[in-house]
Amino acid sequence: MSADIHDSVVAEDSPIDYEQFQASPEFQDLKSRLRRFVFPLTAVFLAWFLVYVFLGAFAHDFMAQPLLGMNVAMWLGLAQFVTTFAITTAYVMFANRRIDPRTAALRAELEELERVAEGDPR
């Protein structure tokens, strides 16, 4: 209960209306752009992982088939690692190119709003 009181006092003392800032088109575009990348990629990877798990659980004969010196299960298991690293690399590249510059601009805008609200003449 005391945390609720503290949060409301902090919110009232804040020089910036964060809810209004979150409703800004720039912030909404940032969220939308991030979600359009992250959610589909997550869904695809989870589907791929579940296929691997179900094959391991229910398709023993298929997974035991020899293929290039190892069985199919080992190759698919290694492919899980490769796709994990590929997804991580894709996300880092995406974030560096599309998310980080927008985030930096929004942060600079917030810092400017705070500076003005506190009366700093710079």
Rank of each mutant, 00 (worst) to 15 (best):
D120F: 01
Q22M: 13
D7A: 13
R33D: 10
P40S: 06
Y91G: 00
F39A: 11
G56W: 05
H6Q: 13
V72R: 00
L67K: 00
Q22N: 08
A104K: 13
K31M: 13
V72D: 01
D61W: 05
A104R: 12
V72I: 15
S8I: 04
F54R: 01
P66C: 00
P66T: 02
T84C: 08
R107P: 00
R122P: 00
F21L: 14
E19V: 11
L34R: 10
V82P: 02
A47I: 13
R98Q: 12
A79N: 08
V82L: 14
V38N: 03
E118V: 04
Q80R: 05
E19D: 14
S24V: 09
Q65C: 03
T89A: 14
I87W: 07
G56C: 04
I16K: 06
V44W: 10
G77C: 06
F54Q: 07
R33T: 15
R98L: 07
A47W: 03
M74L: 12
L110M: 15
G69Q: 04
V116Y: 00
F62V: 15
W48K: 11
A95E: 13
L76A: 09
Q80S: 07
E109I: 02
L76K: 02
V10K: 15
R115T: 09
V72A: 01
F58M: 04
